[in-house]
Write a protein that binds this DNA or RNA. Structure first.
Ligand SMILES: [Zn+2]
Ligand SMILES: [Zn+2]
Ligand SMILES: [Zn+2]
Ligand SMILES: [Zn+2]
Lengths: 171, 171
DNA sequence: ACTCATAGTGTTATATTATAACGGTTTTAG
DNA sequence: CTAAAACCGTTATAATATAACACTATGAGT
């Protein structure tokens, strides 16, 4: 059973995030082209916000950002955007595995590792509020479920605690 | 690593539930006495509902039951109970590990295995809507987190799929 | 028994998160 | 050029959760 224990949690580590972000966006575009699904301007706008922050955002937080951008673009005249617009974009992004929902925070985060989105696993630091996706999800749980004759559709794994950096600093 | 694979998920199995329920209640009472915390009438009332159903209930579903009971007791005259009453009872029961929150359903379920409530793990059947708590939670995930220098406070593990019975029947 | 502190309860109002329903516009397939 | 489907925008409302305040019961110390 001894799997590779060298996990990388990019969101907890120093990294060139502007490159990380543009890579995510490129990846998303390719993925949508390959699947013949449409990454429309709205969806792109929401995904861009999420990849930029690299952290969970609430639906209404995203909504506020969109409205900000509307003001900047069009000068304060125009109507403000309504919740369904955000939820619909999120629905698409979730379905394509480009975004995950963090159930214990009612929030959404862009996927770091498209490919195993059906079994994403997260570490959530209560110190710095950062959330990191495990890059090699643990499968022993799913195996156990399988042994019970349980056919897995989707798994939610969210571990809350204090990350290494916050442990160092807080001590 | 080869752990015991003989999981029992009592909520998915035939069992004498009225005995299961009264045992849970006895256990809760003893636990509260030992800890010198008060299982007040309200808290008892909410816990009773949850152990009776042995399934997740939403806060407002619980609220409706309470109001039902008020009507039965006092004849329809009296005021109806308000949300904070339920949420406060739940807050207590969660803190004592007598109840778990199912994040992916915004619902609450009584604990089958008081003792490891810090690391409960659930199987959620989308066929029969039953939810079962694993009686020996998998620890390999928590170990991985630990190896990353992450101090775990609380873990949420909720696996959605189709249980064995529903697989049989649905095929 | 009196007094204060604390924990529990009840009530009102409101915040936060999410969806239903409808109509218009754009895209796509035939 | 249509007709169907997908997408978008808007209004209204549903579902979930908490803030704030006042009252009551309990308990410890005097
Ligand atoms: Zn990054
Ligand atoms: Zn941290
Ligand atoms: Zn039972
Ligand atoms: Zn089932």
């Amino acid at each position: 059973m001894s799997e590779d224990n060298t996990q990388h949690c990019i969101a907890f580590e120093q990294h060139d995030h502007s490159q990380c972000q543009s890579q995510s966006m490129r990846h998303a575009k390719t993925l949508c082209e390959n699947r013949r699904v449409k990454l429309t301007p709205r969806r792109l706008q929401v995904l861009t916000l999420l990849t930029q922050s690299h952290q969970p955002m609430g639906a209404y937080e995203i909504l506020d950002c969109l409205n900000q951008q509307v003001v900047e673009m069009e000068g304060k005249k125009s109507q403000s955007i309504a919740p369904p617009i955000v939820y619909r974009a999120l629905e698409f992004l979730l379905a394509e595995g480009l975004v995950h929902r963090i159930e214990s925070k009612n929030a959404f985060i862009s996927c770091d590792h498209p490919g195993h989105h059906y079994a994403a696993q997260f570490l959530i630091c209560s110190g710095c509020e950062k959330v990191a996706e495990l890059d090699s999800p643990d499968s022993s749980l799913l195996t156990k479920a399988d042994n019970l004759g349980f056919k897995v559709d989707h798994s939610v794994v969210e571990i809350t605690g204090v990350c290494r950096d916050c442990n160092k600093n807080g001590a």
